[in-house]
Design a binder for these strands. Sequence first.
DNA 1: TATGAATGAGTTTTCATTCAT
DNA 2: TATGAATGAAAACTCATTCAT
Lengths: 213, 213, 213, 213
Amino acid sequence: MTTAQRRAREKARRQQEILEAAKAVFFEKGIHRATMDDVAAQAEVSKGTVYLYFQSKESILAHLLLEGLSILLSLLKAAYAPQEPLSAEKHLRQLVEAYWQFAQTYPDYFRLLLALDRGRFRERVPAGMYQQILMESTRGLELVAKAIRQGTREGALTADDPLLAAGVLWGALNGALTLMANPVRQEMIPVEPKAMFDTTFELFLRGLQANNR
Amino acid sequence: MTTAQRRAREKARRQQEILEAAKAVFFEKGIHRATMDDVAAQAEVSKGTVYLYFQSKESILAHLLLEGLSILLSLLKAAYAPQEPLSAEKHLRQLVEAYWQFAQTYPDYFRLLLALDRGRFRERVPAGMYQQILMESTRGLELVAKAIRQGTREGALTADDPLLAAGVLWGALNGALTLMANPVRQEMIPVEPKAMFDTTFELFLRGLQANNR
Amino acid sequence: MTTAQRRAREKARRQQEILEAAKAVFFEKGIHRATMDDVAAQAEVSKGTVYLYFQSKESILAHLLLEGLSILLSLLKAAYAPQEPLSAEKHLRQLVEAYWQFAQTYPDYFRLLLALDRGRFRERVPAGMYQQILMESTRGLELVAKAIRQGTREGALTADDPLLAAGVLWGALNGALTLMANPVRQEMIPVEPKAMFDTTFELFLRGLQANNR
Amino acid sequence: MTTAQRRAREKARRQQEILEAAKAVFFEKGIHRATMDDVAAQAEVSKGTVYLYFQSKESILAHLLLEGLSILLSLLKAAYAPQEPLSAEKHLRQLVEAYWQFAQTYPDYFRLLLALDRGRFRERVPAGMYQQILMESTRGLELVAKAIRQGTREGALTADDPLLAAGVLWGALNGALTLMANPVRQEMIPVEPKAMFDTTFELFLRGLQANNR
DNA sequence: TATGAATGAGTTTTCATTCAT
DNA sequence: TATGAATGAAAACTCATTCAT
């Protein structure tokens, strides 16, 4: 059994190494331009080995995605964690700030996540992984919805459908970040990305606030 | 002279035909997966002919983009056109509705426009066309900013930076549409795209409204 | 008859214009890189017209070649023309100098002529033109042979086969010019092309001189 | 280790096979007309494999060139090698004979070497290889210069600049061979190539001989 | 398990030549 | 005679994936 365990650990480690290599390469050259040769070279294994651990390029991508999601989720959870009772607004602020932090700290993962939302990429990913990705995302969104739900319960916010409102926030923040990621758009709207991001949240929040008739 | 005119017309028509073919192919297979062979086949001309009318694949893309932008812009202008004095809110509503109409009526062009915001597309497009694309986009955004500016002037809205606010709205709507374009996200947030779109706007609008403390 | 004549003249002129254009384009971009489109554009006629006057790209080349040869031949003839009786050596010197002048004054034609000596080019040229090219070249070589023949007759030079000797000189001068045309070779043999050219001739001449046992 | 060695050997062999194939194809169809598909077909491998062993078409050319140069150089060295003290003339004769032998035995390589002297081949070849090609050429020329230098030292020959004289000889022989390689020129100068070659050398030699005033 | 050699379909772009008008 | 639109066969190079060892 010990041997088996060691083997499994070895295997997991190797897989992780390749994943790291792929991340480095994908993010440096761009997913499209990066080749499996690049990945193998960076991981210092042969190309065959890469295929031993991953079915395809897409599969590597899916794994990276999952990794990114997992990081994001833990950040969101940490941001939500009620060490002490918090107002709904405070919760939201912290979640949104965590999202910003994620986008800043892990721009590569963030871009990957955004890319998922376009992309014909889906069809080529093992179905199982896809489900997992779906679930994880949902969990993140659920945290936001929860905060909004709390707000409506407490009368601080007005939202007929908290999940929808959470979705709106999510989309809006993504939209803001996407826009500001483009140099051309930055020229058109000459403000710092952070300002755009914050303004998006503030407008959204005010829009939700209940005394708002 | 008639001959020359006929020729010019023929030429324009042929170019348009190829553009149509390219649009069909790009949108069906995805820009990346679509090949110039596909375009030529769809247009029922030889590949050489395609290159007679367009310098490169990127150039075709740029042309399509410009076409899409031009449609959008005319819709926005029509939506803004003050047949009679309108409130800022009314203006915004109409602009946003026009954007929705555009996204619905020309989903392909809409996707193309969204796609512009990624990729190193810029480098490979004739500089002149790029500038034009940039200018047209700016004009669209300017209409929104104008409406917001009117609102602040009239005291109906509060926005320190109307252009920024317009950008936020634009990003938010794009984000909403992007999210809902993805089946997975649709599963996560079980509402109609239109509902998501409208909610985004309503929240944004309420957020801007001045009596909002 | 007059109409026919005018027509013929017109035709010849047009052909000459295209030839000029082709020369400009071929020599600027290199024969290989120059396209028939380039030629047509430079000549300010349509591509179809170019084909009306020349069967093919190769045919244009052949015409240019012939033109170059004709220039060279007239230079050689002028150089040889015995306004007064000249020694064989003097004749040779003047012919060789004329060759150098040609190479300097018409580097493009000169390169073309050299290119003829390699080149699979032959097969694709109308047979008639080929014969003409052959004849013209022969006439040039004949002038050199004649000078050498004179030298042997007068006892100043020793050459069993004057035509062969002329060929040797021709080849040697071409070889010198070819070598010096290459930057790499220039690095290897750090002298001026003219020095190399002259030395080649001087050595050849001394080699022919009769007191040379 | 044995495995690694076998692999290396296999790899070298395969590369050599492709090189042979390329040589055959390039020489049969002409470098320009030969395609990488041709090379692959001749080598009985896929095109991808060719690119596995060589970066580009130019790189193959450079390899062939280097190979040819190396053969030539070893022939020249062997021809020069003074088993016993030799006169300068003898040395030169042997070097020139070796050059002839090379041109006869390896006409393809010879043509390739001549071809080097044109084209913008330089830019497209790995810089390192280019330097090597340059060096090898220089070494060959140096042998000739050395013999001439010996001759001037011993008083048998007169040459102000032995390297220049060597260059002249080289150019002259190339010129002779180039001329005779062309059927048209052969018609014009009806002698055997060998006669032309030899005459070129004899004239050159006599030209150098010191008692030659 | 690990290797890395081999594959070959696929991609964009070019250009001499033809031909209907 | 002149036009210029149309052709389509190339051509060089790439890369995800497979497979014998």
